[in-house]
Amino acid sequence: MGGLSLNIMKNIYLVPLILTIFSLSVIAIALQLDTSPEMIVGESMQARSFPIFLMILKLILIGVMTYQFYKNNPKPVTLEKYHTWGSMFLFLLFYLLTVYTDMFIGIFVVIFLMSILWGERRIWVAFLTATVTPGLVFLLFDYVLKIRFPRGILMNLYYG
């Protein structure tokens, strides 16, 4: 093991470690679940048994996967371009805008910024996409499918 560099160790153990922590956390939470009286469950399973069984099965498979990684060193995962991280950040921005302003303002801002982030140089094209898309989608869902959208600045104006 001493010969393994930090990067190789990361390649081999990072994913199994995350999955193991997840599985153990699920088991720990499942053990806290209530139990049902014998007369309801009978000879069947308690609510906690099935998730625990699944996680034990998963831990076994994680062990096999780690062995496979150890034997055949997995390919290093390439780092994301800023487009990917930026898009994830835009999801967060969408959440904030939807909660504090309006869902359609969130969609407009995200489409506009995502187009620019992904390389659209013509501002008017990004603006047009950001305006027309939510507009058409709103018309379709509101008039044709009769969906009521969550209230916000714009929807309050529309619904009154």
């Binding site: 969609i107 995200v110 995502m114 187009s115 992904w118 990004a126 996409t129 950001a130 989608v137």
Partner: peptide, 10 residues
């Protein structure tokens, strides 16, 4: 892609 995928997001 910079037009298509933002539409997919919406």
């Amino acid at each position: 892609t910079q037009i298509l995928w933002p539409i997919v997001f919406a």
